[in-house]
């Protein structure tokens, strides 16, 4: 069915207000729009890894989520969700659960790229019928903006401060989406927020309604950690896409597809400039950092284009 934005927006809210995410938080926008893609009559059960999203959405007794929801720890959303899905298979077989359920796990880049990486990999490999959604904000935001393996090179974080000797994070960003593709699971999608949320909505639908494990990586900016004006969320995600820093693509049963190709690939400065975490890269004498960053973006983009041919 063709995407109908107004129909999607007309669905009842599954993510209530009154949570304690920061003003302008990308994780809140991510959660609302992922949930909006699910058919309103469908039952879902959600696992949330420890992180901003978890801490802000269930501070006892104020639960934000309208569906059944569980948090147990930081590094185990994959395994917890897998256990839940195994329970569903057992109870359905034994006639104790009659309704259909879909299973979603949410984790930040800390809970997905790093501490929860093994648990995520295990759950995907074991073929649980579930969707793992990583909301990637490129650092450990809940503990105060420390670097993660998802943090880009040169980024100024509280554990990779840009100093006079070390220019921010020394290492490149890990590509978790590609690692998930390497698990040979039925569906992997990479997306972020664009005006009518079509890309995110359609990828979520595919992820949820494809049988078997699926992985969704959503770039979800953090105004505090990235140091941009909180109203500028859409400008930042657009720049991430238009510079090809965060390409929109999906892999269905091994087949790569670009879901959006910029008409004119913008220089990486368009993405870096508005963000305080990259400010040092624009100082005189640091031009090489921007060049290096651009090279890395170009390399990854070319590799992706080849896969999408």
């Amino acid at each position: 069915m063709a995407y109908n934005f107004k129909e999607e927006m007309n669905k009842p809210e599954r993510f209530a207000g009154g949570h304690r995410l920061c003003a302008g938080c990308g994780a809140g926008v991510m959660a609302r729009n992922v949930l909006r893609a699910i058919d309103e009559d469908d039952n879902i059960a959600i696992v949330n890894a420890t992180g901003c999203l978890q801490a802000a959405t269930f501070s006892y007794p104020y639960i934000t989520w309208e569906d059944s929801w569980i948090h147990s720890a930081f590094e185990n959303a994959g395994a917890t969700c897998g256990g839940m899905e195994a329970a569903y298979r057992a109870l359905e077989k034994r006639g104790k659960v009659k309704e259909k359920y879909k299973f979603l796990a949410f984790g930040g880049d800390g809970g997905s790229y790093d501490i929860g990486f093994q648990s995520l990999s295990g759950a995907m490999e074991r073929n649980h019928d579930m969707v793992y959604i990583c909301y990637d904000n490129e650092a450990y935001m809940n503990t105060g903006i420390q670097r993660s393996s998802s943090t880009s090179r040169f980024t100024d974080t509280t554990t990779t401060p840009a100093g006079s000797v070390v220019p921010g994070k020394p290492q490149n960003k890990k590509n978790l989406t590609e690692i998930m593709v390497a698990h040979s699971i039925p569906y992997v999608g990479q997306t972020t927020f664009l005006a009518n949320m079509k890309d995110l909505n359609e990828k979520t639908k595919k992820a949820v309604y494809t049988e078997g494990p699926a992985f969704l990586n959503v770039l979800a900016p953090c105004t505090r950690g990235w140091r941009y004006d909180m109203a500028d969320l859409l400008d930042i995600t657009k720049a991430a896409v238009e510079t090809c820093f965060w390409p929109l693509f999906e892999v269905e049963n091994g087949k790569y597809k670009l879901t959006y190709e910029p008409k004119k690939k913008l220089p990486i400065e368009e993405y870096l400039r508005p963000q305080g975490r990259f400010k040092h890269m624009f100082k005189k004498g640091n031009e090489w950092m921007i060049e290096e960053f651009q090279k890395e973006v170009d390399l990854k983009w070319e590799m992706l284009l080849k896969k999408c041919e």
Partner: peptide
């Protein structure tokens, strides 16, 4: 599962789900 940590995590998810 791929570890004991995940064994207990899966048991938590499963038991919480009603199994």
């Amino acid at each position: 599962v791929e570890s004991e940590h995940s064994a207990m995590s899966a048991c938590i998810g499963s038991q919480a789900a009603g199994a």
